[in-house]
Design a binder for these strands. Structure first.
Lengths: 272, 272
DNA sequence: CAAATAGTGTCTCTAAGACAATATCAC
DNA sequence: GTGATATTGTCTTAGAGACACTATTTG
C-alpha cells in the first residue's frame, strides 16, 4: 500500500487529448392551457424548455439548456444546476437519456454531451413567473410518427421549429434517431429531444414518474390528463381511477367553482 | 453564415480543465455448467468478465474491462472496442447504465466513467476459447438482497470477491447503490456492477433481450433457463412456452443423446 | 422399465378495457 | 333545468399462473 501511495504521488494523467464534457437537459412540463369555456376543463400541453443562443455557433437558433461540466461536481449535479440557473426551479427528478459523442457533433471541437430528461411541475414554474422577453422559453411539443419518419414540432408564439427524424435503431425499449432536418435546432439537439421524449414516454407507464409532474395536491382528472398528454393515449376515467388507486390517498379538500361537480383533491401515497 | 465560419476559425476551446473520459463495461454471459449426471441437465450460471489490474492504482485487484475514450470514436464504440480487445468477441448488444462522475471516484484524478451492460452469448466465447492464465476471467455472479443491504458475490475458482452495497435511491425502475464494502473490487466498480445488474434485470423481462444471450439455434428449455438465471425467478415450462411462442420459430433439428426426450431446436423469429 | 426432460391441454385468477348509471356543481 | 365533470359499479376479455397429463429418449 505504501507503493500505491508513492505511485499516486508521482502520477500525472497522461497528455492524451481529452474531450470537453457537457450536460444537456430536456426539461419537460405539462401546462394546463387557458380556460375557453367557463365549465369545460382546459386542454393540457406538453412543453419543453429551450434557450435561444446568443453567440456562435448556431447564433439565434434554439438549443437545450446545458453547459460544461465543472470540476468538483457530478454530471447529474451539472444538469440540475443548468436547469436551476435557467428556471430558478430545482427539478423534482432527472433521468439519464444517453451520451451523445459523435466526433463531429459540435463544430467547436471535441465535446460530448450527457443528455438528461427532467420533469418540472407546472406549479413551481408558475410561482417563479415567466419572462416573455427572456431567451429561455417553454415550447409546446408534438412528436408524431409517420411510417419510418418522425416529425418533431416545437412551437412558442410565432416561432415554429419543425425537425424531421428517422428511426435509427431500437434497443432496450428505447429508440435512437438520426436527424433528417434539424429544423433550426442547434447542434444535434433535435435527436436528443426525440430520444428524451422516447425515454420519457417509456417511463411514463410508471405512475410514480407522472406524479413528479404534479403539485402536492391534485385531482385524479389532472393526474390522468398529464399521463395522457405525455403518452399521447387516452384511458377511460373509471379504469384510470382504479389503476392509480394504490398510488394516491384522499384529502378532505375539493376544487370548487368550476361549473361542474367539484373534484376531490388527492395526494401521493408514499408507500412502496 | 459567413460570420459563423469566421467565428469557428478563430475559436479555441477555452483552457478550462477537462476530465478524462472512460467507458467501463459489465459484460455478462450465461454459461451452462458441466454435466454431473448423464441424464440431468446442467445448472446455468450468470457470469461477468473481470480483469485483474496489472498496475497501480488497485494493483492486483479485479476491475471491469474499460479504457479511455479516444479521439474520433463514440463512447459506445469505445465500450465495444474494450470488450473486443479482451474477449475477441464483438458484443451482440450494449446498453447504457449510467455515468459515474463523483469527483473522488478515481485516485489518479478527474476521470468520469460511462458504464455499459453488454450481453455475450456463451457460444461465441466457447469458440474463442478461454485462457486460464489470462488476467481476464469470467466470475460467477450472485446478487442477493437482505433488507436494505445487498450482497454481491463474485467467484472464480478460489477467488471470492464479496462486496456489500446499500440502496441509495430508486428512480425510473433503476436503483443506485452506495458501496459499503468494495470487496477487493477496484474503484467504484462494485456499485457499477450492482447498477448494471439492476438494469439488466429490469430489461430481462423483455424476451428480445434474453435472445441476445443465446446462440442462433437453441432449445426452449435453454431459453427459459437463461431467463431464470438472469432474473432469479422460476416459471412453469408450460407457461414459458406459451409466452415466448411469438418470439421463436421451429427448426427441424433436435438435440439428441441427452438421456431423455430430445428437444426441438428453435430460432429467433425476426418479426415486428 | 426407470428416470429424466419435452411438450400439450385446460382450468383458474387477476388486471385491464368497455360501458352504463349515478352524483354534484355553476350558471 | 342544462351541461359539464366526478365517481361508482359491473360485465367482458386477454393473459399469466397452476397443474394434470402425455410423449420420447438412453442406460
Amino acid at each position: 500500500m505504501g507503493s500505491e501511495k508513492e505511485f499516486l504521488q508521482n502520477y500525472k494523467l497522461s497528455d492524451y487529448e481529452r474531450p470537453s464534457v457537457t450536460a444537456d437537459v430536456a426539461a419537460f412540463m405539462v401546462s394546463s392551457g387557458d380556460k375557453t369555456d367557463y365549465r369545460r376543463n382546459p386542454e393540457n400541453k406538453l412543453q419543453i424548455l429551450l434557450i435561444k443562443r446568443g453567440g456562435y455557433p448556431f447564433k439565434d437558433m434554439w438549443a437545450l439548456p446545458g453547459g460544461f461540466l465543472q470540476k468538483g461536481e457530478t454530471v447529474e449535479e451539472c444538469a440540475m444546476r443548468e436547469i436551476y440557473e435557467e428556471t430558478d426551479v430545482m427539478p423534482v427528478s432527472i433521468m439519464p437519456v444517453g451520451v451523445f459523442s459523435a466526433p463531429d457533433r459540435d463544430p467547436r471541437g471535441w465535446i460530448i454531451s450527457n443528455a438528461y430528461v427532467s420533469i418540472i411541475s407546472e406549479e413551481s414554474v408558475r410561482q417563479v413567473g415567466k419572462d416573455d422577453a427572456s431567451d429561455a422559453q417553454w415550447f409546446s411539443v408534438s412528436f408524431e410518427r409517420d411510417g419510418d419518419i418522425y416529425h418533431l414540432n416545437l412551437t412558442y408564439g410565432d416561432t415554429e421549429l419543425k425537425a424531421v427524424l428517422a428511426e435509427e435503431k431500437s434497443h432496450f425499449g428505447r429508440t435512437e434517431f438520426r436527424i433528417v432536418d434539424s429544423g433550426r435546432l442547434a447542434f444535434d439537439h433535435a435527436s436528443i429531444i426525440a430520444e428524451a421524449l422516447s425515454a420519457l414516454r417509456s417511463e411514463a407507464k410508471n405512475y410514480d414518474t407522472i406524479l413528479d409532474f404534479l403539485p402536492e395536491k391534485f385531482t385524479l382528472t389532472a393526474f390522468q390528463k398529464v399521463q395522457e398528454t405525455i403518452m399521447n393515449v387516452s384511458v377511460l376515467p373509471a379504469n384510470f381511477r382504479r389503476m392509480v388507486s394504490s398510488y394516491v390517498e384522499e384529502t378532505d379538500e375539493y376544487v370548487r367553482g368550476e361549473g361542474h361537480r367539484p373534484a376531490k383533491l388527492y395526494r401521493r401515497k408514499n408507500n412502496s
